[in-house]
Amino acid sequence: MTDDDLIHALGALDAPAFDADFRAGVMARGARRRLVREVLVGLVLLTITVPALAFSGPALGEAGRVLGETLAPVLVAGLVVSGLAWQAYRYLDRGLTRAG
């Protein structure tokens, strides 16, 4: 086979020159990923901030201490769950894109 024959055969796998669905898929995945990342960063920041509030409770008063003590365990668990959720999200994201 000549190179032209091989190029012709491989050309059967070519994608279209322009595909609005492909572009939309990239943009949608990018937007979803950015949103999830921002939520996760927020959770991590809360997880750091709230226990700090708890430790500085006496300085911030009773309300700060109670808030910290109540929310800190939940948010620490949230950090772990966030990591798992991120992995699950990435897995599902691929499925969603394909389904779309």
């Binding site: 994608a15 898929g25 943009m27």
Partner: peptide
């Protein structure tokens, strides 16, 4: 998005020839 339009075909063509099937190739390109 304009960059995706300009280079989408090249990325997909390459990925499709590397991957198990065109759908996997498009996923890799994305």
């Amino acid at each position: 998005g304009r960059l995706v339009d300009r280079h989408g075909q090249a990325a997909r063509n390459f990925a499709r020839r590397l991957a198990a099937n065109p759908a996997d190739g498009d996923d890799i390109a994305q």
